[in-house]
C-alpha cells in the first residue's frame, strides 16, 4: 500500500503554506526536513486529515483522507498535544484507544504493552501533569502506536527526549518502518540521518528535494544547509531535486 499525495496546496491569507506538493510514499521511514515555517506541520496535518487542503488529494490505497477507513490505519503524534486534567498515562491511552475503536480488553492489553515499550510502565498510575517533557513525548509516541498504524505521522517526535531515549526511539521507528509507512518531520538532521530511507526537504511551502541518501551522496547536514543557500543555477542539481512539479531522476 502506498500513500499518494497529489498537488496538495494550502494557503493562509497571503502566505502559501503548501504549494502543489505531489509525492508517493511506500513502506519505510521518510524524513521530512525543513526550517521552522517551511510548511512541514501544515503538510502533516493535511496528510492526517486535520486540515483541509485548498486543492489536491491524499489517498491511502482507495481510502481518501477524509474517511473513517483512512483514519483507522493512521497514527499521529502532533508537535504539541494536551490531555484532560486528572488523566494518568493509563487513562490517556485507554481514552485514545476508545477513539481509535479498540475494544476495552484489547485496549488494556495494548496499553500495557506500549507503556512497557516506551518505559513508562512504572509511572502508568501517575498523573500526566507530573510528567517531564520527555515522558510526555514518550506517551505521545505510545498513543500514536495504539492501533498498529499502517501510516505513522510524527511531527517533531524527538523534541524533549534525552540522548538515550532518542537512540531507543530511532530503533523503534526503524522497526516500525519495516512494516509501515513512517513520515517523520524534524529540523534536526541527525534524527533522521540514520533511520530515514528517503529524505524530503521543504522550503517556503514547496518540496525542494525528494530522494535517498545515495542521491545526496554527501553529508546530509551539509546538503541540507546548502539547500537554504542561494541556489546556483549553473551548478548540477543532485538526483531527487524537485524542479517545478518534476523530480530529477532518483525521485519517486
Amino acid at each position: 500500500m502506498e500513500l499518494h499525495i497529489d498537488r496538495l496546496s494550502k494557503h493562509y491569507k497571503n502566505k502559501i503554506a503548501a504549494d502543489r506538493i505531489s509525492l508517493s510514499l511506500g513502506r519505510g521511514v521518510h524524513g521530512l526536513l525543513g526550517a521552522n515555517g517551511a510548511g512541514k506541520t501544515t503538510l502533516m496535518r493535511m496528510i492526517c486529515g486535520i486540515l483541509r487542503p485548498d486543492s489536491g488529494t491524499v489517498t491511502f490505497g482507495r481510502a481518501d483522507v477524509s474517511t473513517e477507513e483512512y483514519r483507522s490505519i493512521l497514527g499521529y503524534l502532533p508537535q504539541d498535544f494536551g490531555y484532560y486534567p486528572g488523566f494518568t498515562a493509563e487513562d490517556f491511552l485507554m481514552y485514545m484507544a476508545a477513539l481509535k475503536g479498540l475494544r476495552k480488553t484489547d485496549a488494556r492489553c495494548r496499553t500495557e504493552e506500549l507503556l512497557s515499550l516506551v518505559g513508562l510502565e512504572t509511572h502508568k498510575k501517575q498523573k500526566i501533569k507530573t510528567y517531564s517533557g520527555g515522558m510526555k513525548q514518550r506517551l505521545g509516541i505510545a498513543q500514536a502506536l495504539l492501533n498498529r498504524p499502517k501510516l505513522l505521522v510524527l511531527d517533531e517526535p524527538t523534541a524533549g527526549l534525552d540522548p538515550k531515549e532518542r537512540v531507543r526511539f530511532r530503533e523503534m521507528i526503524d522497526r516500525i518502518g519495516q512494516e509501515s509507512i513512517v513520515l517523520l518531520s524534524t529540523h534536526i538532521v541527525s534524527d533522521i540521518e540514520l533511520i530515514a530511507d528517503r529524505i524530503l526537504m521543504m522550503k517556503d511551502g514547496r518540496l525542494i528535494f525528494n530522494g535517498t541518501h545515495e542521491d545526496i551522496g554527501e553529508n546530509l547536514e551539509e546538503f541540507y544547509l546548502k539547500q537554504f543557500d542561494d541556489i546556483n543555477p549553473s551548478a548540477p542539481a543532485p538526483a531527487g531535486t524537485v524542479t517545478g512539479s518534476k523530480i530529477k531522476h532518483g525521485g519517486i
Binding site: 496535518r45 492526517c48 486529515g49 486535520i50 473513517e68 483514519r71 483507522s72 493512521l74 499521529y76 502532533p78 504539541d80 498535544f81 494536551g82 490531555y83 484532560y84 486534567p85 485514545m96 476508545a98 477513539l99 481509535k100 475503536g101 498513543q143 492501533n147
Partner: peptide
C-alpha cells in the same frame, strides 16, 4: 468545548472516531 480547552483537538481529529 473541553477538547479545545485542553489541547486534545489534534489527537481527536486524527482518530477513527474523530
Amino acid at each position: 468545548g473541553r477538547s479545545a480547552r485542553f489541547g486534545m483537538e489534534e489527537l481527536e481529529l486524527s482518530a477513527r472516531f474523530s
